[in-house]
């Protein structure tokens, strides 16, 4: 038996820059981002079929106040969670995938690890199950997240952070290079 298939609607790519957060209930939406040591948290409610992504980097610096840095991360996560709740998600149903937190240089401070540890701790404290993703490592990543289905895909770029500042540089990579489908 064959099923009649309607023509799929074209995907609508939405790029998330550092410091941004987007939520969506649009089946055509694909949230994308480029990550080095930054973290992108992808949250999804499978029943309400809504999802969202943020992209943050905990502030660092000689005079960085650790609690200020953490407050910034918590703020970014709060925006994402509250945004999802406002379009019908239920906190108890939220599921998370984390990406990024790579160590792309041999600098003394592993910023990626700090970002990853913060995000993992945050989810644990909030009781949001971490069901997948890809964190740490030494590669830059390109992430795609379908907020309605909760599907995520990662393209490992394997290039230093200086290159990911220019999205055009990486767009020359052959399609499928290092691509991993995650759930």
């Amino acid at each position: 038996m064959t099923e009649a298939r309607s023509t799929p609607s074209p995907e609508r790519l939405i790029h998330i820059h550092q410091g941004e957060c987007r939520i969506s209930e649009d089946p055509a939406a694909v949230l994308t981002t480029m990550l080095g040591s930054c973290i992108a948290a992808c949250l999804h409610d499978p029943v309400a079929r809504v999802g969202g992504m943020n992209h943050f980097l905990l502030p660092e610096g000689e005079n960085a106040d650790r609690s200020a840095s953490l407050r910034y991360g918590a703020y970014s996560m709060e925006l994402l969670v509250n945004g999802l709740l406002s379009i019908g998600a239920n906190r108890e149903r939220l599921r998370a995938k984390l990406f990024g937190g790579g160590r792309l240089t041999e600098a003394l401070t592993d910023i990626g690890e700090k970002n990853t540890a913060f995000a993992e701790q945050y989810l644990k404290r909030e009781g949001i199950p971490l069901i997948g993703g890809s964190v740490r490592g030494s590669s830059a990543r390109r992430i795609q997240f379908w907020p309605v289905s909760g599907r995520a895909r990662q393209l490992s770029l394997g290039i230093p952070p200086v290159a990911i500042a220019n999205a055009q540089t990486v767009s020359h990579l052959p399609a499928g290079h290092g691509s991993v489908e995650l759930f």
Binding site: R71, A74, M77, E78, Y122, R125, E126
Partner: peptide
């Protein structure tokens, strides 16, 4: 409502 943020606010208060 978000435990992580709540704890950060409390620790900020202690710092001041």
């Amino acid at each position: 409502d978000q435990a992580a943020m709540r704890q950060l606010i409390c620790s900020s208060l202690r710092q001041i």
